[in-house]
């Protein structure tokens, strides 16, 4: 049982980390796209029609898909004044409550994302710009981001639940950083 839970958590962590680190490569690309637009407008005197939307898409992909990885690294901001004062067991219990709330939010996000995806495909929704790139991939991305966050939260929830019951850590050492 412990092994099963542990593999579940490790598998999710692995998956979330891969995606989180992959989208990080969009950061330099995003900067280049914006810099190129400045170049095209100022030097070539012919602004592109695609840089505006492309940079927003890249920004959204980094921001949304990186969320689960940030959660894994405990990078999301919390107000830890009271949280740090309580025992580790209590903290696990707090986590289980707040992760439930967060998972509910992700559930709603995914549900809405699916609705939107359906509409987007049905009506072939695009951005309102002249370039008019399609929107369907964006909603697929949002659903994925919500799903990843949900999985990551569930792994941490399982791990805290295990810790609360047995008093031991499910995974002995958190994965080292870089």
């Amino acid at each position: 049982m412990t092994t099963l839970l542990r593999s579940y958590c490790l598998a999710i962590e692995f998956f979330v980390r891969i995606i989180g680190r992959s989208v990080a490569w969009f950061v330099p690309i995003l900067s280049l796209v914006v810099a190129f637009e400045v170049f095209a407008r100022y030097v070539l005197n012919s602004p592109t029609i695609w840089a505006y939307d492309l940079s927003l898409f890249l920004f959204a992909y980094i921001a949304a898909l990186g969320g689960a990885y940030a959660q894994q690294k405990n990078a999301h901001i919390n107000v830890d004044i009271f949280y740090l004062k309580v025992s580790e067991r209590t903290r696990r219990f707090f986590n289980m409550l707040t992760y439930l709330l967060a998972m509910y939010f992700m559930f709603v996000l995914i549900k809405v994302g699916l609705d939107q995806l359906e509409q987007t495909i049905k009506f072939n929704y695009r951005r309102q710009s002249e370039w008019a790139p399609p929107m369907h991939h964006f909603w697929v991305m949002i659903i994925t981001a919500g799903g990843l966050m949900m999985l990551q939260l569930s792994a941490q929830w399982v791990s805290d639940c295990y810790g609360l019951i047995t008093g031991n850590d499910l995974i002995s050492q958190p994965e080292s950083d870089e």
Binding site: H76, I77, N78, Y83, L84, T98, L101, A102
Partner: peptide
């Protein structure tokens, strides 16, 4: 939610 140490953005949305 803040007292329980919830992640701020997720808690506000939730």
């Amino acid at each position: 939610a803040f007292a329980l140490g919830a992640p701020v953005g997720l808690a506000l949305g939730g």
